[in-house]
Structure formats: C-alpha cells, structure tokens
Write a protein that binds this DNA or RNA. Structure first.
Lengths: 198, 198
DNA sequence: ACCTGAACACCGTTCAAGT
DNA sequence: ACCTGAACACCGTTCAAGT
C-alpha cells in the first residue's frame, strides 16, 4: 500500500521545518509529524536515530543553504567591496527567510552535546566562505591585515547578532527595519576594518 | 512542619538557574526542581502561573542584573570612551558568567508569545542604558551623530552575537579567546563609529 | 494561605510483530 | 527493508483534599 519508500526521509525533514516555521520548535513532536504524513509515529526511526538526529539533519541542510547563498552573493557582487557587503546582506536575509533552520542551527539544541562530525564539517565550510572572502580582500588591499580568523569571528558575530535579534522579534519593539540596520552595519564594518596606510 | 513560607519562590528561581546551568535547559523539569527542594512537584503553582512564568522570572532577574552591571561598568570607566568600552566587555562577561540566564533571556523561549509587560519593561531598561551612554558620548563629540537607536541596535547586535556564539561553544572550535575577541571588537567599533569632522 | 497525591493528556523511545 | 501497535518511563497541569 502507500509506502513512502525512499522519500519518507525527505518528507520528514520538510514536515519538521514546516512545523517549526508555523508553530515553533516546541510544537515539533514526532507524533504530530507522523500523523501529518499519515505514517506511524515510530516510522521515523527507520531514517533517523532519534529526534535530535532529525534536528541535526535540518541544521546540516541549513548550513549547506547558507554556504551556497553566501558564495553566490560574493560572486554576484564580483568579489571585492561590493561582494563582501552583499555577503553580509545575504547572511541576514537567509536567517530571516529561514528562521526555523537558523534557530535549529544556532539555538543551542545541537551544539549542547558533541554534534555529529558531518554537521560540524558543514558549519566549518560555511564559516570558511567568510574567511576566504576576507583573505581575498586583504590581498587586494581593501581590508586591515589582522588575522583573517579574528576578522571573521568579529564579522560573523555582527551578522549573527542582527539575525538572532531579528528572528526573535527584539527589533519590532523599536520599529527597526532589519534591511536598514544591515546596511548601516555594513558601512560601519567597512569604516572600522578598512586597510590602514603602511 | 518544614514549610518553605515566603522563600520558596526564591528557592525555586535559584534551583531553576542551577539546573539549567548544570544540565541544560531541557533538563529543567518541575518534578526535578520540586524533588531537589523536597517539595511536591505542584507546589510551584502557588508561586508561578506555570513553567513559562518561572522562566520569565528568571529572564527578568537576568535583565536587572545585566542593566546593573552595564551601568556599573559605564560608571567605573568614568563614562566617555573608557566607560563605553568597559560596557562592551561587561556585557559579554555577564553572558559568559550567567549563560543560563542569558539563554532564557534571548533563547526565544520567552519572546515567542507576547511576554509579560514587566519583563518587556526590564529588557527595555537594560537597552536604555546603552542608548544613554551613546547619547552622552555623542554630546561629548566622541561618536558619530547617527540616530542613537540605530547605533544602539548595531552595537547591541555585536555584543549579543559574540555572547551567543561564545555561550554555544562556537568559538572553541577555532580556539578563539572571547576576551581577546571582545577587545578587538571594541577597537573596531570605536574606529567604525568615531565622530566625523564637520 | 500553602502544600499534597492521584489523575489526565501528553511526550520520546523500545520492541515484538507484521508485510 | 520498512512500517505498525502496544508498552514503558517520562512530562506539565488540574483538582479535590488535607493542614
């Protein structure tokens, strides 16, 4: 009869994201997901070790999407200053457009225990996109010659902070437009990290 | 016999923080808290409407502590540049020293639904400490004359981003010392937001 | 007023059993 | 291989009852 065959895994991931998007992370129960997919609530265990493995998979897909969109923004901006600024905008835009992915990626649900190495690898790859762009700009004389990792930690913190506060609605209270804030941040980062004369 | 009288509320708050600190937010169960305080698991309902009200109270105390420590740092630094830099350091230091408070304050557990107005007021008061310091610096000609709220959103995002990533252990992977990162951030913020010549 | 114990409706997970 | 149904040990919350 209506076996889901190979695509139940895919359906479970999509339904998990959909549920978090609509009703929040606390509403994600294996029973509800199974019920909505017309499947036993234990069918999931054929595809994931447990609930946290499902969340890890969601986070992993999120990191792949993020890395792809960051790289695309860098390319679309033609590298250099325009490309880097575009990366910052793309980062926050990803978080705002995919809040459930982002929350699972950084909400502390996965990072608590030692996460599966594949997830760590994908997170590192996304971070590396930022480091690469920083090194490229330094070599073009567009950015301070601080250690790239330090600059990356700093800039990642800024866009992450904006993204988190935006997702959690902390800006709505004082009517802050997120796009405007990111534009302001990009300018201030540029001013604060410009290459200094030798 | 061993009634807790008026201080059960206090004991519940402390035990909640202790539990989150030691075992994580997912380990905070009303049953465990009650058991550890030698009290029925339903005794809590005499002091809090429900579990989320307990978390709201923890968050509220966190905002009071944060505001106090930010104001103290500003004063200790004698206002001006030194005081402002000290505020940034104090912010991240608070988060790292009180990760369970911080996670409840910003982890999206409280902000999801409409939070109680008292909590919102305390969060706003903490934010206002930053705005006030920014206005003072602008009047002293030490900071760009952008809208104070915009500068506050920007700087709050930076320290919040560093704090969150630090708490969730995302810096341990590439051996970043948080104090060093904050020091670097404070310098870059200063350079990026310095007053411009008229 | 403050606390208790039993009860209710949930949850993730396991496991023997079915196809 | 893939899915099911019953069972187990949890959870937050309610409520009549005790002091």
């Amino acid at each position: 009869m209506a076996y889901h065959h190979g695509d139940l895994r895919r359906a479970l991931l999509d339904e998990a994201v959909r549920t978090i998007q609509m009703d929040g992370l606390h509403a994600l129960t294996l029973r509800a997901v199974g019920q909505r997919l017309k499947v036993s609530r234990t069918a999931l265990y054929r595809h994931f070790a447990d609930k946290s493995a499902l969340l890890s998979a969601v986070a992993g897909e999120g990191f792949v999407m993020l890395r792809t969109q960051l790289a695309a923004a860098w390319e679309a901006g033609g590298g250099g200053v325009a490309g880097f600024d575009e990366m910052g905008r793309a980062y926050v835009r990803f978080a705002v457009a995919n809040p459930s992915h982002y929350r699972v990626m950084f909400g502390g649900f996965v990072a608590e225990r030692e996460p599966d190495p594949e997830l760590a690898r994908e997170a590192t790859a996304a971070f590396q996109t930022l480091v690469d762009a920083i090194v490229a700009q330094q070599q073009a004389g567009l950015l301070r010659r601080d250690p790239p990792q330090r600059l990356a930690d700093y800039i990642w913190s800024i866009v992450h902070g904006i993204a988190m506060l935006a997702i959690d609605g902390h800006f709505q209270h004082h009517c802050t437009d997120v796009e405007d804030l990111v534009a302001f941040a990009v300018e201030r980062i540029r001013t604060g990290t410009a290459a200094v004369a030798d």
